[in-house]
Computed example of a mutant assay.
Amino acid sequence: MASSTVSTKIACLILVTMLVIAPHHSAQAAIECPAVLKMVGPCLDYLKKGGDIPTECCTGVKSLDSITKTQPERQEACECIKPMADSNSINYDLANKLAPACGVDIQINITPNMDCSTVKF
């Protein structure tokens, strides 16, 4: 009977440890560039040519905003997006108008020479 009690206590300890560690681990999850690029990919034609903003674009911008709630997360997302913006010759004026047009307040000035380490939350 004593070994059953010890086993139960060990199982409870493991469960409590998992519950304590799990939220910490998920909060520290890195931003994945392929996911970021998939979210903003529908915006690319608009960012190059202008015109109407596709619904999928605003959906992606809102999703990206919802998963980047800390300064380091926004800096990581910036590092993911910057090479795509550079290689596709986007219109930076349109890029700066995109988030507000989608109802998102990112407070980031997007430029060709943007230093992602300076992105604030």
Rank of each mutant, 00 (worst) to 15 (best):
G60N: 10
I53H: 04
E73N: 03
A85N: 11
L64W: 09
L64G: 07
T70D: 04
C33Q: 14
V16N: 08
L15T: 05
H25V: 06
D65R: 07
G41K: 13
I90M: 10
A35C: 01
I90W: 08
Q28W: 03
P83T: 10
M39R: 11
L44R: 13
D93V: 14
I21L: 13
P83G: 08
V40A: 12
S87K: 14
P72A: 08
I67Y: 03
P72F: 00
C58D: 11
T59P: 02
E56F: 03
R74A: 08
V20I: 15
L19P: 02
K69T: 15
M39G: 01
T70L: 04
C57W: 15
L47C: 11
N96E: 10
A77H: 09
C57R: 11
A77M: 12
K82E: 08
P23W: 02
M18N: 07
E76V: 04
H24Y: 05
L44E: 12
I53P: 09
Q71R: 15
D45A: 09
L19G: 15
E73Q: 09
T59I: 09
V20S: 06
M39Q: 09
V20E: 01
K48F: 10
K48N: 10
H24R: 07
I31V: 15
L47V: 08
L94T: 06
H25P: 00
K49C: 01
I21G: 00
H25W: 02
Y46A: 13
L15P: 05
I14Q: 02
T59S: 10
E76C: 06
D52V: 04
D45V: 09
T68I: 02
P72R: 07
D93S: 15
K48V: 15
P54W: 11
K82F: 00
S89V: 00
E32D: 13
L15C: 06
L64A: 14
L44Y: 14
G50D: 11
V36T: 13
G50A: 14
I21H: 01
E76L: 06
C43F: 00
E56W: 00
P83R: 12
C43Q: 03
Q75W: 03
E32A: 08
A29D: 06
D86N: 09
G50L: 15
D93R: 10
V36Q: 05
T17G: 07
Y92P: 13
P54S: 08
I67G: 02
P42C: 14
P34I: 01
A29W: 02
I21D: 06
K48A: 12
A30D: 12
T70V: 01
A22V: 00
L94G: 05
I53V: 09
R74L: 09
D93L: 07
A85E: 09
H25R: 10
K82S: 11
A95E: 11
C80Y: 11
I53A: 04
I31C: 03
I21W: 07
C80F: 10
P72Y: 02
G50R: 14
N91F: 05
A29V: 03
K38V: 01
I81G: 11
V61C: 07
I53E: 03
V61F: 07
L19C: 15
L94S: 05
